[in-house]
Amino acid sequence: MGMTPGNFDYVRVSSFREAARILSEEENSKILAGGQSLIPLLKTRIMNVDLLIDISGIKGSGGIRQEKKSLEIGATYRVGELEGNSLAAESFPILHDAASSIADPLVRNMGTVGGNLAHADPGNDLPPVMVALNAEFTVLGPKGERVERSAAFFKGAFSTSMDHSDTLTSIRINQKDGNVSSAFVKQRKSAGDFSLASVASVVELDDSGNFKDSRTVLGSVFPAPMILEGVDAYLKGKKANSETIKKAASLVRTQINPESDFFASADYRRHVSSLLVNNALTTAVRRSGVNIA
């Protein structure tokens, strides 16, 4: 109920290796990136830590590198910087969609891309986006560095494939060849900052305007992002028009089985998920240059 965090120590590290070492030495330690989820949590004193390891000072950890076929984002790259990065938005409009809708501009100026992913709050927006983009996460653990596929990274609410001594160091998104576009849409809870449901969609159209490939991911409805395989299977090879999209979106109603809770009924979650799939696909297809109603 308080407005101050409990006691902890603080260390600023200059490399991810140092962070990894300290993490494995100190049992109740935690990585601090931007702190926009962690600090409010510490203030509730529901969560207590002995040591915070600030990785934001690691040289280059907050950078971004765009190459012809890929984008590499450092874990401490700020969400607000991603929002303002027009080059990244051009290649991956879905990143701008999500980054500009997270919390508010002040929080985005501090909050980091890596933090949004590693915290794995089901209400967060970047997890489904990264799953849709099939991003690769570079994780540094005691045994060295490894690369995790985004789809395998998110395990549940506040739970990822990383264990205590792992740190997410960077995110790599590969640009696919062909006519690829993307979109992210969300519905917030009726009050508050978090998403009730979100849909991240990456689509690839062939020369005749049919869906060649797609990945449609539902966020915030389940503890971890869910790839809507039924939707993607349906889309494959079909004409990218509003009829196809509508039909694909309607499949969602029967293909997911969300729970009812205080914030929404299962019915409303189905309804919203279906509409958001429609909206995300429509926007993504439009961005591919196809004019659909």
Binding site: A191, G192, D193
Partner: peptide
């Protein structure tokens, strides 16, 4: 159910 100012529904 409202744990934050934002949860309590004040408009921004």
């Amino acid at each position: 159910m409202a744990a934050t100012l934002s949860d309590s529904g004040v408009l921004n």
